[in-house]
Simulated assay, not measured.
Amino acid sequence: MSALLPSPATPYLGHKACPLFLALLAIGTIVPGFIHAFLPDGGAGTIAGLDLSAGGPVIIGTFAWAGATQIAYGTLMLLVALRYRALVPFFFLIILMERSLIALNSWVLKPSGTGHHPPEAYATLALLPLVAAALYFSLKPRPDAAS
């Protein structure tokens, strides 16, 4: 197993709550991933409220594809939060970039035109400042952290 998951060598020096927050974000990524991958409509109609009468199979297939990616990405986030904590700040940076692009596309560059936004569009807006703060605190060494 050590070839697959090498020993974490670099210590994590940031705030102790940041890996826990990353683990919560991981669960918040994995659960929707399972919904998108395994719910019959991928949550497109039942949760996001999309009209599936035109192009339904393509939309559902795209949701399933996104769900598979979310499961893999969330699992990696969880692994970093639990075992490779030195990468916690890097993952917050990646999440901040991801969420910024989602917000930019959802609200500015590619809005639906109908005024309808799925729940994730609002969750993204709420998460942006939280992830930015987590990035800051994960980079700031704790007073008790040995350097």
Results as ranks from 00 to 15, higher is better:
L135K: 06
I95G: 02
T124S: 14
L5W: 15
E98T: 15
L20V: 12
M1Q: 13
I95A: 07
L5E: 11
S7F: 14
T10S: 13
R142P: 05
A23K: 09
F63C: 08
G61A: 06
P111K: 03
V108A: 14
H117L: 06
G67I: 00
H117K: 02
F21I: 12
Q70V: 00
I35N: 08
N105L: 10
T29N: 11
I35W: 04
L128C: 12
P89I: 01
L4A: 03
F91E: 11
Y136C: 11
M97Y: 11
P118R: 00
L125W: 08
A37Y: 05
G45E: 05
L127I: 03
A9D: 12
I102H: 15
A37F: 07
E120V: 05
P11V: 01
T29Y: 07
G113E: 01
A64V: 01
L13G: 10
T124Q: 10
H117N: 06
A126C: 11
L5P: 05
Y73E: 10
A121P: 11
H15N: 14
L52C: 11
H36I: 02
T10N: 13
S2V: 12
V58D: 13
A44I: 00
A126W: 09
A81F: 05
A26E: 10
A72S: 11
P57T: 00
L125I: 06
L87F: 08
A126H: 04
M97F: 12
L128D: 14
V80F: 11
A66C: 08
G67N: 01
S2L: 12
I35K: 04
Y73N: 08
T69A: 15
L127D: 08
L82G: 06
K16F: 13
F21D: 09
W65G: 14
L52G: 07
A17F: 14
A126K: 05
P8Y: 03
L4R: 09
M97N: 12
P57E: 00
F90W: 13
L109R: 10
I102V: 14
P118T: 00
I95F: 05
A123T: 06
L104Q: 05
L130Y: 08
A86T: 02
L39H: 10
L4E: 02
L22N: 01
P57V: 00
S2N: 15
L22W: 07
S7Y: 15
F91V: 03
P129G: 15
P19K: 11
V88N: 06
I59A: 10
L130R: 06
P8Q: 05
F91Y: 14
V88E: 12
I47Y: 15
A17V: 07
F63D: 04
I102N: 14
S147C: 10
V58S: 14
I27Q: 07
I27T: 13
H116N: 08
A64Y: 10
D51M: 04
A17T: 12
G67Q: 01
P89C: 02
A9W: 04
G33Q: 00
E98L: 14
L82D: 13
G55P: 08
A68Q: 07
A9M: 11
G43P: 00
K140G: 03
L25E: 12
I102Q: 15
G49M: 00
I94F: 09
P119D: 09
T124C: 14
D41M: 07
G67D: 03
A54E: 15
S106L: 12
G67H: 00
L101C: 03
A132H: 07
G56R: 02
